[in-house]
Amino acid sequence: MGKIENQKAWFFVLPVLFLVAFNALIPLMTVVNYSVQETFGDNTFFWAGLMWFEEVLLSERFHASLMRQMIFTFSILAIEIPLGVAIALTMPRKGPWVPVCLVLMALPLLIPWNVVGAMWNIFALPDIGLLGRTLNAIGFDYNFTRQPGDAWFTMILMDVWHWTSLVVLLAYAGLVSIPDAYYQAAKIDGAKPFAIFRYIQLPKMKRVLTIAVLLRFMDSFMIYTEPFVLTGGGPGNSTTLLSIDLVKIALGQFDLGPAAAMSLIYFLIILAMSWVFYTVMMRNEAK
């Protein structure tokens, strides 16, 4: 029997194509358009080839922001993933406390990003903030608006506070989906608590943890609002992450070409690294 050709099916794809074109492809193409052109105003553009890409890739400023971004992202991953799993392990799996714990955990996730930034900004102010004053009162010379180290400490603490809950909720979902029979089987075998964690809970959480790592990686790599509200990229450029730098170039200096090139490079880095994370974490999974 020959395959029945039905060209009408294409009509059903059209609405989606239309939607994707308007909300993704066309805006992206304008960025691509800017990234290969030069303008001197007046809405006249000249072909610039890969000039902007070369400029961005070779600029020390980009290297520095990228490095800061990497340090930030990997620090929060290194803290949030283990911490999230640890908290999920201590949460009750049945009983009246389950909803209480879940709501408490979800609270930080419900707060708008700029509010989180503003909250932590005030919380950490050395003269009036609870955290800042307390730290100074017990003898630390803490001032996140002046000292880069303190700014970093506050920024990471804020992110951990805001987003560890997401990892907790995902890990918890993975944990409660493990049937009791696994724990019983392990008990019959005489497995120790660490063996249960290592050989049952961790492998069973693998899929959700992969999602957690990917989400946290992508979100933290693109983070803008919270650190911008908290430190504005300062003191100096010490907390200027990639997105903050990008906005400075695009909207502050109005360098459309370099900003467009940087956007595309930024996007490709996230895409490539997400792919690497996913492939590495899923390499042993069945097809």
């Binding site: 049937p179 029979a181 019983q184 019959i188 050989y199 069973k204 042993n284």
Partner: peptide, 27 residues
């Protein structure tokens, strides 16, 4: 239970997910 020398098979297929079949049987 560990000292009773019992074994149990469940309705769900319970195996150590990260172990090979050999290691599962050997556990």
């Amino acid at each position: 239970v560990q000292k009773r020398n019992v074994s149990m098979v469940y309705q769900q297929f319970i195996n150590y997910p990260s172990f090979s079949v050999f290691e599962n049987i050997a556990s």
